[in-house]
C-alpha cells in the first residue's frame, strides 16, 4: 500500500508535485531547487533531472504553474521574495531552468501565491504579510516574465478605508479548480493576522463589467469571523450543484457548501455543513482528491488524516496515516 519512491536531499524544506503527479520539485534551506522526474509514466522510479540555486535564502513553498504555460514554478523564499523559474530549451541549447521573474518586494513578505487560469490569461494571486492581496496577470502566454498588476486589495468585505499597520503570519489561497472556460474565475482567501476583519475566508470573484474583484461570500459564522485561518482548500466539482470548500482555523476544520447562483446583492449562499476536530493540532495543508470526495489534511501532529462524507452527508475521519520508520 505504501512505497517510498524518492529520497530527498538533506535540508529539504518543501515539495510540490506538478499537475500530473509525474514531476516533483523540492526546495531546500540553501535555496536549491531539485526536480525529480519519472521517464515512464507507468513506473514510480524517479530520478533528479535538474538541481539549481533559485535564491540565497531558504525556499519555503513551491507552486507549479498550470501546464498550459509550460513547466514553471514559483518559489516563495524565507526572506519573503517571490521568484518564477521556467524550464526551457532555447536555440538548440540544452534543457535548462531560467529565472523569468523576480516579483517586486517593497517591505512586506509574500505569504502565499496561487495560479488561476482564465480563458485568455494566467492570473497569480499573492497574499502579503502587510495584508495586501495582489492579482497579477500574464498577458503573453509565451513570456512568463511580463506580469501586469491587475488589482490590489485587502481581504475585507466592506472596505471603507484601507487598514494600515497590519501584521500577518500566514495566508492561504485556493482557486476554484474549474477546468472549463465558461464560469468566471474565483478564489477563496483567508489570513492569520492581527486584524480580525481580515482573517475570515472570503470568496473573491472578478466582476467583468466593472473590472474589479468583489467578495461574494464569507465563510465564517458570525462568532468566528476573527478566527485566524491557517489553510483553505477548494474541492474539484464534478457535477455537484454547489461548491465545497474546506477551511481550517486553530479551532477546527470546517466544510462549507457554497451555492453557485448569487442573490440580487451578488452574494452566494453559504452553509457550514461540518465541523471536524483538528485534535488540538494546527493544520498546515489540506488537499482534495480529484473527485472532491476525500479531503486529506496534515499538520503539526505529523499524521495524514483522511475525511469523507457518509451516505447521509455526515463528515467523518475515515483513516489516519501515521508515519513510522
Amino acid at each position: 500500500m505504501d512505497k517510498p519512491i524518492i529520497h530527498l536531499d538533506k535540508g529539504t524544506t518543501c515539495t510540490a508535485w506538478n499537475y500530473s503527479g509525474q514531476r516533483l520539485a523540492a526546495g531546500s534551506t540553501d535555496g536549491n531547487l531539485s526536480i525529480f522526474d519519472s521517464t515512464d509514466p507507468a513506473s514510480s522510479v524517479f530520478s533528479c533531472s535538474s538541481k539549481f540555486k533559485v535564491h540565497e535564502s531558504s525556499i519555503v513553498k513551491i507552486i507549479w504553474a498550470p501546464p498550459e504555460y509550460g513547466d514553471a514554478v514559483v518559489c516563495i523564499c524565507a526572506d519573503g521574495s517571490l521568484l518564477l523559474w521556467e524550464e526551457v530549451v532555447e536555440d538548440s541549447e540544452l534543457l535548462q531552468w531560467k529565472l523569468c521573474k523576480c516579483f517586486d518586494r517593497i517591505s512586506s513578505q509574500v505569504l502565499d501565491v496561487q495560479f488561476g487560469v482564465s480563458k485568455t490569461s494566467l492570473k497569480l494571486v499573492a497574499a502579503y504579510s502587510d495584508g495586501q492581496v495582489k492579482v497579477f496577470e500574464l498577458l503573453d502566454p509565451f513570456e512568463l516574465k511580463n506580469w501586469q498588476l491587475q488589482a490590489e486589495f485587502q481581504n475585507v468585505i466592506e472596505s471603507v478605508s484601507k487598514f494600515g499597520n497590519v501584521s500577518c503570519q500566514s495566508a492561504s489561497i485556493a482557486w476554484n479548480p474549474l477546468k472549463g472556460e465558461i464560469q468566471q474565475s474565483s478564489f477563496v482567501l483567508g489570513f492569520n493576522s492581527d486584524m480580525p476583519q481580515m482573517n475570515s475566508s472570503k470568496v473573491w470573484e472578478f466582476d467583468q463589467d466593472h473590472q474589479r474583484w468583489l467578495p461574494v461570500a464569507e465563510l465564517a459564522l458570525p462568532a468566528d469571523k476573527g478566527d485566524p485561518v491557517s489553510t483553505v482548500a477548494w474541492a474539484p466539482n464534478i457535477g455537484r450543484p454547489y461548491e465545497l470548500i474546506a477551511i481550517s482555523t486553530s479551532k477546527e476544520i470546517a466544510i462549507w457548501h457554497v451555492g453557485s447562483n448569487p442573490d440580487p446583492g451578488g452574494r452566494l449562499s453559504v452553509e457550514k455543513v461540518a465541523t471536524l476536530s483538528t485534535h488540538d493540532s494546527e493544520v498546515w495543508q489540506m488537499e482534495w482528491d480529484m473527485s472532491g470526495m476525500t479531503l486529506a489534511t496534515t499538520g503539526s501532529d505529523d499524521v495524514v488524516r483522511l475525511w469523507q462524507s457518509d451516505l447521509n452527508g455526515v463528515w467523518h475521519e475515515q483513516a489516519v496515516l501515521e508515519p513510522t520508520s
Partner: peptide
C-alpha cells in the same frame, strides 16, 4: 478512524509532512 502505518524509512525526527493527490486514489 482506522490507523494505518506509513513506512518511510527516515531515521531523523519528522519536521513536517506534505501531501498531494496523484491520479485516482494515490
Amino acid at each position: 478512524a482506522v490507523i494505518y502505518p506509513l513506512h518511510h524509512g527516515l531515521k531523523s525526527p519528522i519536521h513536517r509532512l506534505s501531501i498531494s493527490w496523484a491520479r485516482g486514489n494515490t
